[in-house]
Design a protein around this nucleic acid. Structure first.
Lengths: 110, 110
DNA sequence: ATATTACTTAGGTATTGACCTAAGTATCGT
DNA sequence: ACGATACTTAGGTCAATACCTAAGTAATAT
C-alpha cells in the first residue's frame, strides 16, 4: 500500500510538463542546474522552483560541489507511481476477466 | 511517443488525491455520481468538478440514463502514464547497464 | 399532480502555482 | 584582488484550482 501523502507528492511533481522534461533529461544521466535549465525559456529562479518540487517529491536528489549543484534521478521513487497504476490495471483486468467468464457461462447454458 | 498535451492532461488528472480515489473506486466497476461522491466530505458541485477533470483527461467516460450519470474507467488512457514511466525506467536502466559494463572493463584491464 | 431524487448551473472566495525582477552569496578563473 | 559564473533569496503578479452556497432542471416515485 502507498501512503497517500507520498503519492500526492509524486503525482503532483509529475503533473507539470517542465518537470517531466527535466526527468527525461535526468534519465539520460546526472546534470547541473544550468544544464537542466538551458532548454527552457524560463528565468532561473522560476526554473529552480521546479527542481525543488522534484527534489521534495524525492524523484530526484542533488548535491552541491563548489558553486555547482548536480541533480540525479532516484529510481526507487518512481515505483510509487508505477505501483499505483499497476494496482489499478490489475483490479480492472481481474474484473473484466470475471465478466468474460460470466458471458462464457451464459453462452454454455444455451 | 506521447503527445505532450495528452500527458499533461493525464498526469494533471492523476495529481489530485480525490481524483485518484475515484479512479480506485471505478477500477472495481462502473458507478454513478452519487455512489462515487458518497465517501467524500465535499459538496456535490465541488466533487463533480473532479469528475469533469477525469472525463476531460479521458481516463474515464460517462453516460446519462434518465437522471443518473454512470462513470466507468477507460483502460487505454492509463497507458499514457504507464508508457511515460516505462520509457524513463528503460532509459536509466540502459544507462546503468552501460556503467556496469564500463566498470567491469576497468577491472579487466588491471 | 406533486414531492423527491439526481444531478447541473451560476455564481463567489481563498489558496496555490507558475511565472517574474532585483539583488544577494559563494566559488572559480585570471 | 576582482570579475565572471552558478546559483540563491526575497520579494511581487496573475491565473488556475479547489472549495463553497444558492438556485435550477429534468426524471422518477407516490
Amino acid at each position: 500500500m502507498v501512503q497517500p501523502a507520498v503519492a500526492d507528492q509524486v503525482f503532483d511533481a509529475l503533473s507539470n510538463s517542465t518537470r517531466r522534461k527535466v526527468l527525461e533529461q535526468l534519465s539520460a544521466g546526472p546534470a547541473t542546474v544550468s544544464e537542466l535549465a538551458a532548454p527552457f525559456d524560463m528565468k532561473l529562479p522560476s526554473f529552480v522552483q521546479h527542481l525543488s518540487v522534484l527534489e521534495e517529491s524525492r524523484l530526484v536528489k542533488s548535491k552541491k560541489r563548489g558553486r555547482v549543484r548536480t541533480y540525479e534521478i532516484v529510481p526507487e521513487r518512481f515505483k510509487v507511481a508505477e505501483n499505483w497504476l499497476t494496482a489499478r490495471r490489475e483490479e480492472w483486468e481481474a474484473r473484466l476477466d470475471r465478466f468474460d467468464q460470466y458471458v462464457k457461462q451464459l453462452k454454455e447454458k444455451e
